[in-house]
């Protein structure tokens, strides 16, 4: 049986232009055997969702350091659902205060990783939770 490769998009919504973290994450995902589509900084939720659908990814990893996650992360989930792509999972990372977690989970974000989280734990989470579609 052929084996599907996991495809992940790493995107940075919002205005902050620091993408070192996102680049490190992209490399880590590559080394874990994933195909990583990296779209760079300053992405609007609309751009992210359009790209995720064109790339047929299994997972979108959003990274945000600017504090705009409260609005932007849920918006990505909402747009995916609108476009009939609600099956694409979304996880978030960056500087996210703990009191925001509940609202993000409610909005459909599947997991949240703060800067302290070891990269391996993110890979492990993906390997356990993300099953490419049959």
């Amino acid at each position: 049986m052929p084996e599907r490769k996991i495809r992940v998009m790493v995107a940075k919504p919002g205005l902050d232009g620091h993408d070192r973290g996102a680049r490190v994450l992209a490399r880590c995902f590559r080394d874990a055997g994933f195909e990583v589509i990296y779209t760079g900084c300053h992405q609007t939720p609309e751009q992210i969702v359009a790209a995720a659908i064109q790339e047929d990814v299994d997972l979108v990893g959003l990274s945000c350091l600017s504090g705009a996650h409260r609005k932007l992360f849920p918006r990505v989930v909402e747009l995916l659902r609108e476009k009939d792509a609600g099956d694409i999972n979304v996880i978030g990372g960056g500087i996210i205060p703990e009191q925001d977690f509940a609202a993000l989970y409610d909005a459909g974000i599947k997991a949240i990783f703060t800067p302290g989280a070891p990269l391996d734990s993110i890979v492990e989470w993906i390997n356990t939770n993300i099953k490419p579609r049959a």
Binding site: K5, R30, E46, A51, E55
Partner: peptide, 18 residues
């Protein structure tokens, strides 16, 4: 080595995403 890949060409074309 890993079978993974970083696909980064798209970065330069994202203004057309929508």
């Amino acid at each position: 080595f890993s079978g993974g890949a970083i696909l980064g060409d798209r970065i330069r074309m994202q203004r057309h995403a929508e």
